[in-house]
Design a protein around this nucleic acid. Structure first.
Lengths: 248, 248
DNA sequence: TTGATTATTGCAACAATTTGCAGTTATTTC
DNA sequence: GAAATAACTGCAAATTGTTGCAATAATCAA
């Protein structure tokens, strides 16, 4: 049995039973437990399973996007929870992509009725799972790395929208440079989003506070609400509060 | 035995067993393992198989275990393989959604350079995985059930495209009613796709031949190529051949 | 056709990957 | 905290891959 084949078998077992024991696997395909362990390690490294003492567990069986481990997932979930609380029935919501946005999408309450605009494939996919949410995809050329639509067409469409609230994940934010990023096309799209909504929410893990990148999306004064995983009272956030931002 | 012949044999074995060992192949056709390895390398480079230590796997193998939920998956993979052979470098390809299309997306050779237009979220996601494919998403309101963009905006955008080839999965097709479906909005989109491309390919598992649904997308005469999992010579396909369709 | 050129194939030496084992260390469980 | 179980480490043997090379086969221009 080829190595890949064996690993595929393991994955299958995991997704079937949600958990496996090294011993069982070793038994059923007749290889040493060491080999199984090595396989599990590899699968865990690429984020396909979660390794535990004695075997492995399935990652959430939400497996459409079985991307590698989300960096700092706990913080992002915290942020997402705060963000969800801002969305009310009937709102027009504009969102970018990014892992934090995806977490938010997963946490949306079932009974929420709202219209979501996005140019992100993973985000649209998640929104579409919700029974009461209407999803409008803003199409154009898809940027491979970030899986969002970029280009003039997308920007034009965004400008024709007037959303109540806009959620942006961010790569870097500080007082001096504002929100910054390092991909020209993505920046253009985010800029358009900023302009097209009444209220702007920026979500950022604290690690990204006070860092900046090459291209500017907008100043701190263009943001209405800043969400981090920190307690709103944290002194790291003081400068932003001074500027008049609401901190969650 | 000629090289091409040998590689065809290898491909056949792979698609038959989902995996092959270099040693076995070397044995059964009496060439050195080096030659087999070189063949496997070539086949892997053009994306026809996945090479692993000790042999090779079928491309669809990866998802083979993970995807027990697709109805009639084997047939769909067969269809997808035939479909892929129609796509050449530099083409503008327009596709719908549906499981058969997804299979096709997964089987696209790594080195294929083409531009794909689609309004389907899962399809766009798959296309975006390929290194040399440019993906243009046709946005609009997302239909939950089928995860594709529907509505006037999407249709207008499709009409502005002139694609070389269009691939449609289908729910029902027969001689009398042509291609039919049961969702009004989806039908409008598919109609637009039919009109916007030079060549139209319809993919259908044989089970859906000679069935029809309520809403008509287009007549049989608007189709250029029909792909099913059957042998092209199968007599079930005779009526379509009579009408001048190319059968794969 | 012929001679030159290119492609294909098998071989040999060397490099790498994979696998199981033994000994040791870490973790769990009572 | 001690016994049991699992995990890690280093290692050796077997298998598989790679590379350069020479012999052979296929292709093509004149």
């Amino acid at each position: 049995m080829l190595k890949k084949e064996r690993q595929a078998y393991i994955l299958h077992q995991v997704s079937l039973h949600n958990s496996v024991l090294s011993a069982d696997l070793s038994n059923s395909i007749n290889v040493s437990e060491d080999t199984i362990r090595r396989d599990l390690n590899e699968l865990a490294e690429t984020g396909k399973v979660i390794k535990v003492h004695g075997g492995a567990l399935s990652k959430s069986f939400n497996s459409f996007y079985l991307r590698s481990d989300v960096y700092n997932a706990d913080s992002k979930i915290l942020i997402a929870e705060k963000a969800v609380s801002l969305i009310k029935d009937g709102m027009f919501v504009l969102t970018g992509g990014g892992t934090t946005i995806i977490e938010m999408a997963r946490l949306l309450p079932e009974n929420l009725k709202a219209t979501f605009f996005t140019g992100s494939i993973p985000a649209a996919f998640e929104y579409a799972q919700h029974p009461n949410i209407e999803v409008i995809f803003i199409g154009d050329k898809i940027a491979k790395r970030s899986q969002i639509a970029i280009g003039g067409e997308a920007i034009t469409r965004i400008k024709h929208i007037k959303a109540d609230i806009c959620f942006l994940g961010t790569n870097a934010i500080d007082m001096e440079h504002g929100i910054t990023d390092n991909d020209w096309d993505v920046v253009q799209v985010k800029k358009a989003m900023l302009e097209s909504s009444t209220q702007t929410v920026v979500m950022s893990i604290s690690e990204k506070l006070n860092s900046y990148q090459r291209i500017r999306i907008g100043g701190v004064d263009e943001i209405d609400i800043l969400i981090t995983e920190l307690d709103p009272g944290n002194k790291l956030l003081d400068p932003f509060r001074m500027k008049g931002l609401t901190i969650l």
